[in-house]
């Protein structure tokens, strides 16, 4: 038990994130990682491939087409993994609530650890969320990824309702 706590503590000091540029929010990511806010001070670093990432940052609205890839990317990430949804759109659709091509709630499809509300959230808000996630990881509270195992039927049902029964088999680029 003590060992797990120690690992949690170290993990919280080194979180690599994958910024899938799904929407507008991606524009506030560069200031967060570059000179002004420099999130690397806290050991949080952008990574290019899902295999190497701990945090999955969903930066904005999700169209149907993107959501498929997001689910794929999420499933490729090694566990434990944390999802931060950025902006109003993944929470309730935001300004695109009545669009025919964007989804209104992200947590119907994959579990989310933290939401950053706002359109668009400032870089400080992103920093705040990352530090909050760091705290959660340190205390062992960021467990949303376990939900994906426990409630996979629920998520799978929603995914199939949107993309069709055998979407995984037929997906290409």
């Amino acid at each position: 038990m003590e060992w797990a706590r120690l690992i949690d503590k170290v993990t919280s000091k080194s979180l690599w994130m994958m910024m899938y540029c799904t929407g507008c929010g991606a524009i506030e990511m560069p200031p967060t990682v570059t000179s002004r806010w420099d999130v690397e001070r806290f050991g949080i670093m952008p990574m290019a491939t899902p295999r190497q990432a701990d945090i999955f940052l969903i930066t904005g609205y999700l169209t149907k087409k993107t959501l498929k890839r997001v689910i794929y990317v999420y499933e490729q990430m090694p566990e434990p993994k944390y999802v931060i949804a950025h902006g109003s759109c993944p929470i309730d659709g935001g300004i695109y609530y009545d669009s025919y091509n964007t989804i209104n709630r992200l947590d119907l499809f994959i579990p989310v650890d933290l939401y950053i509300q706002g359109c668009m959230p400032r870089a400080e808000a992103v920093m705040d969320a990352l530090l909050k996630l760091r705290e959660m990881v340190e205390k062992g509270e960021a467990n949303a990824w376990q939900k994906y195992h426990e409630n996979f039927e629920y998520y799978d049902k929603n995914q199939k309702a949107l993309f069709g029964e055998n979407w995984r088999a037929v997906m290409t680029l």
Binding site: T11, K13, D38, E40, G43
Partner: peptide, 17 residues
């Protein structure tokens, strides 16, 4: 890059993680 950068022990934490 005109920023602070991570602490020197950062790679060790990365590897343990």
């Amino acid at each position: 890059h005109q920023r602070y950068g991570p602490p020197l022990w950062q790679p060790y934490a990365d590897v343990i993680k």
